[in-house]
Every structure is written in C-alpha cells, then in structure tokens.
C-alpha cells in the first residue's frame, strides 16, 4: 500500500475497530470517532469523543485505533479527545441500531432533552424485546453492566435484556 491514504480510507479501516464492551458496533458506528485528517507524509490525526465521562473503555478504544492504523501502514498516529459536541445516542445510524438488536441489546430510544427532571410516570414506551420482539417489557434498572446500558425484562418470554441508554 502507499504511505499516504485518505480520510475515507481511514474511516473504512476504523470500521474494524470494535467497542470492547459492545463488540458488535465499530467505534465509527458508535459515534466515538469524530474526525480524521491525513498529512502529506501519511501520518493520521484522529479525533474522538468519549461516550460517558467515566467510560473505562475509552483508553482501550484509543489504543485500538492507534494500533489499527499503524498496522495499516500509517507512519504516525495521534488520537486527540474532544468533548464538544457532547456524544449522543441520537447519532447512531439505523444500521447500527439493527446490529445492536440482532446482538440482543435493545437500541436506544430518542433522547428527550427537555423532559421533566423527575417524571416518575415516564412518557413513551419501552423497547421491544430484542429476542421475541414483544412490546410487553418492564424496566428493571436504569443502570446496567456498563455505563451505557440499562436493564429490562421481557414479560412475554421472561428474558432479561439490556438496552443502550438514550443520552
């Protein structure tokens, strides 16, 4: 391969770098990769944004991106973190949502930015069960096994499942 690549090629390569906690999604689909620029000498500068402030996967993601691009022949790779605009699950494309559901994780609903702070009675409906597709699901916990997920249970097939939190 030639030493100098393109931004599009970098994004295509990064499709192979998966989220370590949700290995069905790439860091591009997740919305973590914000930008990439390629210099004349072929070195690549990638900009990423964290999902959650305390997400322990971010350092692994940063290293995986660097390793993947060095392996592809980039002579130098820098990964910088930006916070603005703040990451949101609204960026997740339909294709990624379908992958999540097929993997057994319900995709996030739309973010409600102006809702009541303490609603108690929550508006809207919960996710359908990613296994039997039943709409009869109950939230078990607002929080789950990782910072980005909540815990639900299906009343139809009794299967517990996780949902990507809308944030």
């Amino acid at each position: 391969m030639s030493a100098v690549t393109t931004r599009e090629q970098v994004f295509a390569w990064l499709e192979d770098v998966k989220d370590p906690e949700v290995p069905v999604l790439s860091v591009v689909e997740l919305g973590v990769v914000r930008d990439a620029t390629v210099s004349d000498d072929g070195s690549v500068a990638v900009t990423i944004t964290p999902t959650y402030s305390g997400c322990p996967a971010m350092r692994v993601i940063e290293e995986s991106i660097r390793d993947a691009l060095l392996l592809r022949g980039a002579p130098r790779v820098t990964v910088a973190t930006v916070f603005s605009p703040a990451w949101t699950t609204d960026w997740m494309p339909e294709t990624a949502r379908a992958k999540l559901e097929a993997y057994g994780i319900a995709p996030p609903g739309a973010v409600d930015p102006v809702g009541d702070l303490v609603p108690l009675q929550r508006a809207g409906t919960g996710p359908r069960c990613p296994f039997c597709k039943s709409p009869r699901t109950t939230r078990r916990s607002d929080f789950g096994s990782t910072a980005c997920k909540a815990l639900w249970v299906c009343e139809e097939c009794t299967q517990p499942f996780e949902q990507f939190k809308a944030i």
Binding site: S53, F83, S84, A86, W87, L117, F143
Partner: peptide
C-alpha cells in the same frame, strides 16, 4: 463548556433516578 455539556446529560439521568 464541553465537559459541562457532557456531564449535564449524565447528571440529568442521576437526578431522575434519585428523585424518583
């Protein structure tokens, strides 16, 4: 400002949980 915009989303989620 960038850190705050991000943290705001998380804190809204926390306060909903605690308030309920």
């Amino acid at each position: 400002a960038g850190i705050a915009a991000k943290a705001l989303k998380e804190s809204r989620y926390h306060v909903r949980h605690a308030g309920e």
